[in-house]
Each structure stands twice: as structure tokens, then as C-alpha cells.
């Protein structure tokens, strides 16, 4: 007697019946019972997906219009994800130590550019992506202003957005120092010199920012920790509030 090998769809059915598969995908998930292009399955596809954190089942039709949102908020978030992924990659090859005349940080940068597989490309992505994110967050703010999307009930979410813009600038600026080249330390020297003019707390503010009187190895360590842990952590918390409030306040604003 010859045994017929099971067909691909039979294997698929068997796999879908296993407890492990069922434990991964919720009842109603399209990965459990298949997908037919009906309005019910379209709703279930969103509802039984982790993206349900971000998106409701339905949105206002005018929100799809590219000229309303220009996708700027979503793209800012995407750039944040891209910067996190490329940033983690770079962390494997970078040590934030510097001394006068020689520097581990700088030689690691050269290493990333020359010997690390795809190192140069990933670093370029990280740097250009960071500039693009500052731009997209700023433009997102302008879009929200021009569509009046900060009006009640969305006032507080606009404030959260301003904080996110500030954090984005902070992340970009702290990252600027890390290559530890001439461009980095002098841009940071110029940028932070203004803190020395704050009223009453000039010296303290300067010391808090630089970990010393001038930009030095302590500044590098301080800004590294700010860049890879502290600021992303704060940013993610505010992002969570921002996204939650978008849905609580009724989704995309408008129409005009």
C-alpha cells in the first residue's frame, strides 16, 4: 500500500489546528480562519492585530487624503523606529570613550566606516534619517497647525507634540557629538555656549550639560547615555501618550 504524501493545504490545516498556533493568533484572526475580502474580515484583520494599539477599525474617509496629513506623523514614527534599529546596530561597534589626542570613539567611527559589514551604510542611514526626522516632525507640527487639529479636544495632545519636538531636537543634538570629530565638538561647543547665558544658573546649567567647563570626555559619556537611553525612554513614554490621545480624542481631525 502506498501512502499519499499530504498536500500543502492539508499541512496548513493541521498546523492551524495545533494548540501552539491557536495560542499565538487570537480567535477571529485572519491567520486562524483565513481571509475573505468582506467587510467583516477587514474589520477582524485590524481588530485581531497588534496594530489595533495604533489604529481603530475604521477611520474617517477624508483622513486618507494624502494632502490632509501628508503621512507626516506616521513617517516621523517610522523614522524613529528606523533610527532605533540602526542605532542599536551602531552600538555594537562603538565605545564612548575619549581622551586628549586619541579617542576610542573616533577610531570606532573609522572602523564602522571601513571594516564593519554595511557599517558605512547603516551609519549614513542613521545620520540622514535623524536629519529627516527633525524635518518631518517640524513639518508635522505645521500640518497640525494649518488644519487646526490642535483645537478642542486635542489641546493637550498638541502640548505633548511640542514636547516630542523638543525631545527630537535633544536626541539629534546629543547624537551629533558622538563621532567625536572636529565637526561634532565644535558644533556642540557653539550650541551649548548659549546655556552659559541663562540667568542665575549659568554655571550650573553649563556644568549639567557638559559635565565640566568645556566639551570633553565627560561630555561624551553624558551625551551618549542621554542619546541611547534617557531621551529615547522619555520619548517613547510621550509617544505612547500621544498615540493614545489621538484615538481618545476622536482620531484624525477635520474635515476642514
Amino acid at each position: 500500500m502506498r501512502l499519499k504524501p499530504p498536500s500543502l493545504s492539508e499541512i496548513g490545516d493541521k498546523v492551524r489546528e495545533t494548540e501552539v498556533w491557536k495560542s499565538i493568533f487570537r480567535p477571529g484572526s485572519i491567520f486562524r480562519k483565513g481571509y475573505k475580502d468582506t467587510s467583516r474580515d477587514r474589520a477582524l484583520a485590524t481588530m485581531n492585530n497588534v496594530l489595533y494599539h495604533l489604529h481603530p477599525v475604521k477611520v474617517k474617509r477624508h483622513g486618507l487624503k494624502l494632502t490632509y496629513t501628508f503621512c507626516l506623523g506616521g513617517l516621523s514614527f517610522f523614522l524613529f523606529i528606523l533610527l532605533t534599529v540602526t542605532g542599536i546596530f551602531l552600538m555594537f561597534f562603538y565605545r564612548q570613550s575619549a581622551a586628549l589626542g586619541s579617542s576610542q570613539a573616533y577610531s570606532d567611527m573609522q572602523n564602522i566606516r571601513t571594516t564593519v559589514f554595511f557599517g558605512d551604510l547603516v551609519r549614513n542611514l542613521h545620520r540622514w534619517g535623524a536629519h529627516l526626522m527633525v524635518l518631518s516632525v517640524t513639518l508635522h507640527m505645521a500640518r497640525v497647525f494649518y488644519t487646526g487639529a490642535y483645537k478642542p479636544p486635542r489641546e493637550f495632545n498638541w502640548v505633548v507634540g511640542v514636547i516630542l519636538l523638543f525631545l527630537t531636537l535633544g536626541l539629534s543634538f546629543t547624537g551629533y557629538l558622538l563621532p567625536w570629530d572636529q565637526l561634532a565638538i565644535w558644533a556642540v561647543t557653539v550650541g551649548t555656549s548659549l546655556a552659559g547665558y541663562s540667568p542665575f544658573i549659568a554655571k550650573q546649567a553649563n556644568f549639567l550639560l557638559l559635565g565640566g567647563a568645556v566639551v570633553g570626555p565627560e561630555t561624551l559619556l553624558r551625551w551618549y547615555v542621554l542619546h541611547v537611553l534617557f531621551l529615547p525612554f522619555i520619548l517613547v513614554i510621550f509617544l505612547a501618550v500621544h498615540f493614545w490621545r489621538i484615538r481618545k480624542d476622536g482620531g484624525v481631525s477635520g474635515p476642514l
Binding site: 586628549l100 579617542s103 551609519r123 570629530d181 565637526l183 565638538i185 565644535w186 558644533a187 557653539v190
Partner: peptide
Amino acid sequence: NAPLRELANPNLTPNPSKAP
């Protein structure tokens, strides 16, 4: 390519020095 200049040197100020 993203720029990478020579090693940081606190005694040599580039001209001009600009912020980001």
C-alpha cells in the same frame, strides 16, 4: 556619505564654527 572630519581637537577652532 555622512561627514566624518579629523579627530576632535579642543585647541583648533574651525572657521567658521557652526551649530547643527
